[in-house]
């Protein structure tokens, strides 16, 4: 069935929203299960088999709760902020290729667009924190902003390296370049790429405010950070946005480094492989969260400025050298 372009886009966006909502619900379930087993307990198990209906129960609970708007908040900012977190995430999904055909809009600057939208996300946190009229929330919002700014730099440098390597910002094309077996994945393109992958992964952890970089939420310091004052679906939307951002972070890592929807063995459709890789990365994100204590803001900035940025710059330079200088040497001989 061929749909005209606007309709196709609409169907995809609806699909993406459903995907995000469902994912947020079941990632929470997964997170609780992973946390449970790491801590040698079971996790949710009462509602439905293996607790599989727990997200449904939680969703109903969140939706049926009153949307409390506390006294003294800025009503407009307070209500808009959760959407400012969720909507950019939805927009970013538009360019992510789930398989060769399964992509809402295959545009040439997909990578750029995702990063453009990713910076809007932090705006949502800032406004939510500021609009809440809560000191904890303001501290948290300020933290989230400085953290995001600091980590965007090494992340973008790594992405620039990738663009130099692939000569394109079209995500689907990047994936297509990695066809033909595990060894063609960009993570193995040259010896520096595993480090680049690591940097990218750490940065996406920090960008999505995940532990050990969950300074914005730091429950033992700031109660619940920027969403302290949110109840019901306001909180729910923040949550969905957060998990959507995790999927985007892991999805990008998969596309850029792990071959996207390319399957190493030629079995099963592409989207299956894409999701498998993404969920594996998400599992790692959870695994990390339930292992480490939280860093402080200084620790975080130190890591960014003293380790990640120098290393990513080094990789950028070396990759550039490899691309430009190496052919000259070999070509000259």
């Amino acid at each position: 069935m061929i749909l005209s372009e606007p309709w196709r886009l609409l169907v995809f966006v609806a699909g993406i929203i459903a995907f995000i909502a469902l994912n947020a619900a079941y990632l929470v379930w997964l997170e609780r299960k992973v946390a449970g087993h790491i801590q040698r307990r079971i996790g949710p198990k009462e509602v439905g088999p293996f607790g599989l209906l727990q997200p449904l129960a939680d969703g109903i609970k969140l939706m049926s709760k009153q949307l409390l708007v506390p006294k003294g908040v800025d009503p407009l900012l307070f209500k808009v902020a959760p959407l400012l977190v969720l909507v950019p995430a939805v927009m970013s999904f538009v360019t992510i290729p789930f398989s060769e055909k399964l992509v809402a809009r295959n545009i040439d600057i997909g990578l750029l667009m995702i990063f453009a939208f990713a910076s809007v996300n932090v705006m949502g946190l800032l406004l939510g924190g500021w609009g809440s009229n809560n000191k904890y929330a303001v501290i948290s919002a300020a933290r989230a902003v400085s953290q995001n700014v600091a980590y965007e730099i090494p992340m973008l440098i790594t992405v620039v390296t990738m663009i130099m390597l692939t000569h394109t910002m079209n995500l689907n094309e990047i994936v297509i370049q990695q066809a033909g077996g595990v060894w063609n994945w960009h993570i193995f393109a040259n010896p520096l790429m595993p480090i680049a992958f690591l940097i990218f992964f750490i940065c996406s952890l920090a960008e999505t405010n995940r532990a050990p970089f969950d300074l914005g939420e730091a429950e033992s310091e700031l109660i619940a950070g920027f969403h302290t004052e949110y109840s019901g679906m306001g909180f729910g939307v923040f949550f969905m946005g957060e998990y959507a951002n995790i999927i985007i972070g892991c999805g990008l890592a998969t596309i850029l480094f792990l071959g996207g929807w390319q399957c190493p063995f030629g079995i099963l459709p592409g989207w299956w492989w894409f999701l498998a890789k993404v969920y594996f990365l998400i599992f790692c994100v959870m695994w990390i969260r339930w292992t480490y204590p939280r860093t402080t803001l200084w620790g975080l900035l130190n890591l960014s400025w003293k380790i990640l940025i120098p290393f990513s710059l080094l990789i950028l330079l070396l990759t550039g050298a490899m691309i430009k200088v190496w052919p000259l040497i070999t070509g000259a001989s």
């Binding site: 790491i38 040698r40 307990r41 050990p212 033992s220 292992t291 204590p293 939280r294």
Partner: peptide, 9 residues
Amino acid sequence: LGGFTPLLY
């Protein structure tokens, strides 16, 4: 300090 798992161990 933000690490949950050691508590349970």
